[in-house]
Structures are given as C-alpha cells and as structure tokens.
Design a protein around this nucleic acid. Sequence first.
DNA 1: GACTAATCGAGACGGTACGTCCCGTCTTCTT
DNA 2: AAGAAGACGGGACGTACCGTCTCGATTAGTC
Lengths: 197, 197, 197, 197
Amino acid sequence: MPAPNPRRTHSGNRRDEQARLAVLHAADDLLVEHGFNALTVEAIARRAGVAKQTIYRWWPSKVEVLLDTLIEDTAKRLPVPAQAATATDIRGYFRGFARFVTRDPAGQVLLALIAEAQHDPGTAKSLHARYLGPRRKQERDMLARAVEAGEISPSLGPDAVVDAIAGPVVYRALTGSSVPRGLVDALVDDVLRPSPG
Amino acid sequence: MPAPNPRRTHSGNRRDEQARLAVLHAADDLLVEHGFNALTVEAIARRAGVAKQTIYRWWPSKVEVLLDTLIEDTAKRLPVPAQAATATDIRGYFRGFARFVTRDPAGQVLLALIAEAQHDPGTAKSLHARYLGPRRKQERDMLARAVEAGEISPSLGPDAVVDAIAGPVVYRALTGSSVPRGLVDALVDDVLRPSPG
Amino acid sequence: MPAPNPRRTHSGNRRDEQARLAVLHAADDLLVEHGFNALTVEAIARRAGVAKQTIYRWWPSKVEVLLDTLIEDTAKRLPVPAQAATATDIRGYFRGFARFVTRDPAGQVLLALIAEAQHDPGTAKSLHARYLGPRRKQERDMLARAVEAGEISPSLGPDAVVDAIAGPVVYRALTGSSVPRGLVDALVDDVLRPSPG
Amino acid sequence: MPAPNPRRTHSGNRRDEQARLAVLHAADDLLVEHGFNALTVEAIARRAGVAKQTIYRWWPSKVEVLLDTLIEDTAKRLPVPAQAATATDIRGYFRGFARFVTRDPAGQVLLALIAEAQHDPGTAKSLHARYLGPRRKQERDMLARAVEAGEISPSLGPDAVVDAIAGPVVYRALTGSSVPRGLVDALVDDVLRPSPG
DNA sequence: GACTAATCGAGACGGTACGTCCCGTCTTCTT
DNA sequence: AAGAAGACGGGACGTACCGTCTCGATTAGTC
C-alpha cells in the first residue's frame, strides 16, 4: 500500500516537519501568552503534543527554538530592503522596525532574546551569530548604497547610525514605553542629515 | 554615653543591618561573577551566610534585592547632577552614564534588571516605580534647567532626548558592543543642537 | 492605688502562673483539636498568647508540656485508689482506666506520649521517669494489698497482671478500636482468678 | 533468546525496581539506625541515592514507604500459618509475634507505624486498610479452625482473644519493656482455656 | 525612691525539611 | 531512525518550624 498517510504520522527515519512546526508555534504562542519565564521545554512539549526528547534532539535549548522562529518570522515580516537606496526607503525601514518591535509577536521574541542574552552568554553568542550579525550586515549595506547615491551623509559611522536610530526604539520597547511614529522620523532626521560642520 | 555596640549579631525584633548588607553584596557579587541565571535565592543565602527565610522576610524576590543594590549604588556612583545646567554638564552626565552601563558592576545590575523586566511584568513594574521613573524625572529636570538657561534647544521633547542618547548606549551595552566615548558626544551633538528649521 | 490588677500582668521576676496555665491549656486543646503533628511550639505560643521564649524558658520541649498536663489531669481524673484492696476495687480501677484512655482528652495525651516515646528516646525516658514508673508503682501496691488480703491470687507477677489488663485496652485504643466494657471485666476475670493448677 | 538484562539503570517509562528497593531499604535502615524523627524523605532520598521526586512519584508519604517494607517483611518473616489448627500452633505463632515485635527490625517498623497512626489519621487509615485489617482476618481464621477442631474454646470472641494476647506484648514493646517468653505462654493459657463457668 | 534583676510579648536570626516544578538524560515501545 | 511517553538524578522554589538571640516594657524586691 504505497499511498502514505499525509496526516500526523512519522516518516520513518526522517525528521518530522509537523513536529518541528508544532514546536516552533508552541514556543511562539507560549512566549506571547505567558511570557519567557513560563516558556519551559516541558511546556512547549506539552503544548506541541511532542515528546521532550524530540525537542532536545533538534534544538540544544529553548533559546534556539525561539531563534528559529525569529529568523523565519523576520524574513517574512521585516526583510531589510535589498534594493533600497533613498532616504525615504531608509526611513520606511526603520518605521517598520519600530512597528515590528512594539507590535509584532515576532518582535516580542526578539526582545525576549535580547533580554535572555543579557542573562546567558550562550544566548548572546547565538543571537549575534545567527541574527544580529547577519541583519546588521544587511543594514550596513543598505546605508552604504544610500551614501554612495548621495542620498545621505551621516556624521556617524554606519553601525553608529543604526544604533542611534534602532537603540532608542529598542530601549523604549524594552522599558515598556510606546514608540510614537514621530520619534523614528525625528531620529532619522537628526542622524542622517549632514553634520553642520 | 552608652555608645551602643555597632557590631552586635541580631538586634531583637529589629532588622539586622549586617545581614541586609551581606545579602546585597552577595547578590551583587554573584551577578557579576556567575550571571543572572546563577543568581538564585539559595545561592545568595549561601554566599551571604544567611538563612533563606531572612531573604524572603525582607524582599519579595531576588529582583528586589538587586533593585536595592542598584538604587544604593547608583546614588553613590552616578547621581544626576542636581545643579547642572550647561550643555557641558549634560554631556558629562551621559559620558558617566555610558561608563556606568559598560564598566561599573552596578551597571550590569541595571542591564540585568532591564532584561528581566522583559521576562517578568512584576520586575518591569518595580523597575519603573523604584528606579527608572524617579531617575527619568531628575533627568528631565536637568534638561529643563538647561533649556531655561538657553544652553540647549532640542528639537525633541525631554523624554525623547534622554531616550535618543541613553537608548543607543543601553542598546549597545545589551548587545555586548563597546560604547566608544565619541559616540556619546556625537549623539549629544546631534540631539541637543537646535533643529535647522 | 495599691490594688494590683490581677488580670494579665507580669509578677516581676517570678514565674507568671497565668502564662503557665495558658500554655498547658493551649497544648491540650491543640492536641485534641488538631492532633500531635499540628502541636508545634509556635502554635502553642500563638494560641496561648505567649512568647516562644516563655515556653522554652520553662519546658525543654513540647513533650514536657504535654507531660505536665497529663500528670495534673491524671491526678484529678484517674487517681490510683490508695486504699483499694478488693477485687471489685481493682475491677473498678481498670474500668476507669479504659474510660480514661478512650474518652478522656487527657487519655489522648497519654496515647500521644506513648506514641511519641516510640519516635524519640528522650520522650520515652521522661514518660517513664515522670509518669509510667510512678504510676506502675502505685498499681503494684494496689495489687499487693489485694493479694495480701486474699482477694486475688493471680498466676502472673504484678507487672504482668497490669500489662495483661491494661495492654489490650491501650492496644485497642491505639488502633482506634472501641473498648467494650465487657472486655475489661473478662480480662480481669481471666487474669485475676487463681490459675487452675 | 534475548535474555533481558536484569541490571539496567532506568527502565523507560516503567518503574525502576532498583530505585524502589533502594528506597525501601534506606527507609528501613534509617528507622532502625536513627529513629522515626530522623526518617525524612530527604534523608531517604540521600541514603538511597535517589531523587526526592522519585519517592513522591510512587509514595504519597514516608509512612507508605514504611508500610510497603512492613508488608513485604512480615510476609517473609511472620506469616500467619495458613494450616495451623492446634493450640500449639497458636502458641507458636504468638511466640513468633513477640519475637518479631521486640527483636526484628520489621517489628520496629510496625511499632513506629502504630505510633504514627496515633499522630496522624491518614496513617491510621492506611495501617488498618493495608496491614492490621488483613492480618487480623487471617488470625481470626486461624482461631476459627482451632475452635472448630475442638482444640480451644476461649471465653472471649476472636478479636478479643487476639487483643488479649497481642495487646500486652505490643504494650510492653511500646513502653520499652522486655517480653519474657513465659509471658506469652501464660497469656495464651489464661485466654484460650475454657472459662471455668 | 531609684536601682537591679528577672520575666514577659514580640519577632529576627541561621538552619532543616517540606512537597512541587523543571532541568537534561535515559529507556521503552510504536510507527 | 524518529517519535510519544515518561521515569530518573538533580537543584531551586517559597513555606513552616526549629531552638537561640536580642529587644523594650513591666514589675518585685533591695539599698
């Protein structure tokens, strides 16, 4: 009987994609609903209907589960524009970033991981290697294109520019303050216009 | 002149100051040496030579212990200048803040609490009520004096000004980047100079 | 105004009789109401309106508190008849003992102490020295008078006689069985009548 | 012939027999060596090389652990003779009981549980349901066979007969007195011979 | 009539055990 | 080989009492 049942069955000695997705979604949901401290491996397994061992087989820790969801969600919902080169594009990107960080569930995952990185060096390392580092590279590229095009001429270096805009946004999000749209625009104006000297 | 013995052990039904200090120092030391995740109430008690119950009697959680050390240490090592009114004073304050957050052990406590606030709403509430709120008020007052004196005329509101300068500093500290001295100065310049309009 | 307030006041450097009685009654009440395991020194102090230290000053342990109440209560409610010499007197005494052990609150104290003696050698020692020993002596004397008067001629020695009658009663009380009146009489008959030899 | 390995460590989601035995033996040893008050769940776990949770998973309290050892040990070392029908058999059984209660470590467990039953109603209930009740039924059956065979004709009912013989033995054991061999024989004689009426 | 001394209620202290939750590892049986 | 299930040794949680201690107050007997 070759016709394999597509619904909820193990696929022999291959990884079970349904289990993988169930874990990612369970982790995401638990984080949003009950916070990071309630996000235990046992709770994820319970919610996902999966054995604990299945989680430990594929992820070294709950942090890596979250990181997987963050990477997948960010690619979908907050891509760094690969062609953008104008000041307006950049402003738009950071507006999207503010929205992401304050309103998107995936933004909560990011904030939780930044927080956990502060508590655990392993998390810090992974977060940089798999998320912050690659992303920052794309952001630098975006800025470089705009500078080259003469669209902007910031007085700060590229990393400092991103930090000067993203930093306040993240800081306000971390401390539970809202991020008014005007703030992003003002930061962009302050940072990207050429220095008066 | 009875000269009450300052080195007694217990002090009856009054609080034992030596135990209080031992707990605060133990918490501080453990955080710096082994990180937040190793900072358990049991470890604090062990290190301080104190019973667990003594901790629970006076603090509802390890977070409040840290908050107490943070408040006391900040008052000593990073007071908001109460008279400051010049642009130079303000620049000096934020340079001190950057040093505090990246190099002072008490700064690590602050970062850990900001992180934990992201994981636990109770921490968030306490951190605002007992630390961030009062501190922010002093910072706003400092800025208000400088504006009144005609020293600065920022294009952003007072909270946004502080976030625009402190945000990048905290964000870089949280993500393990250094905070070059020049960055603070540049941020201050960008944010405090009058808008070009 | 010399008339000293008789209600609730310390008597200088002498022991406070009211505190003593409050402790004894609190211990008794707690045992009857909530059982031995709920009978903590803190609970006694709470219930008696007395400081813990006051208990520890006068009694080495909660067991000694109970022993004090047991001794006082037994003297009042189950004295060994000092003049008794007839078989009927003896039968009456053991009937009273069965009632004491199954229905009198002080009997519960006795059972609790016999039990605790099984758990703690110190309790065993105190219970014998202050209660079981002296009492057994009086019982032996009672039996000796009856033997001398020719009222009874048991085949067992005096200790064995008491154990043969009291033993089953205590055992049934300890295992929560009732002690029917007929049982005591039958035991007395079996044990006190001369052996057939 | 796979010959399943009997010396495995954990056995999956089935109960680990080695851990079970380690707990029973540790409890037994601790009771004998240090008494009931030193018999804490933590001490059992420590001694058995087992996690506390493993104990709580299978037993609701330390009392049930003891009860398990008592049931297993009594079955081995003091079975109620299932065929016995003569007066001599009965005398032999109660001699064995006296030895068990005064000299066998398992007898100490029984005494400790009778004692604890006095302190805690839950213990009383379990002790009856799982030990005293079933055992008493076997003892009644033994007596019934002897009566039917015309071997004995006691003046007391079957429960009273057992209590009249076992009661003094237990009582002396509980109060730390020895139980001389002659005592059991004399009790048996007094109780089992036909009443003189 | 102040002083001394012991007792009292109160409760903080260092400590042990409680019973629960979760960790990360393991073993079994099923698919 | 991967999965669900869940037992295992371990460690921390927050609570209850232990027995000791120090406090400030009250009250007797002594000088």
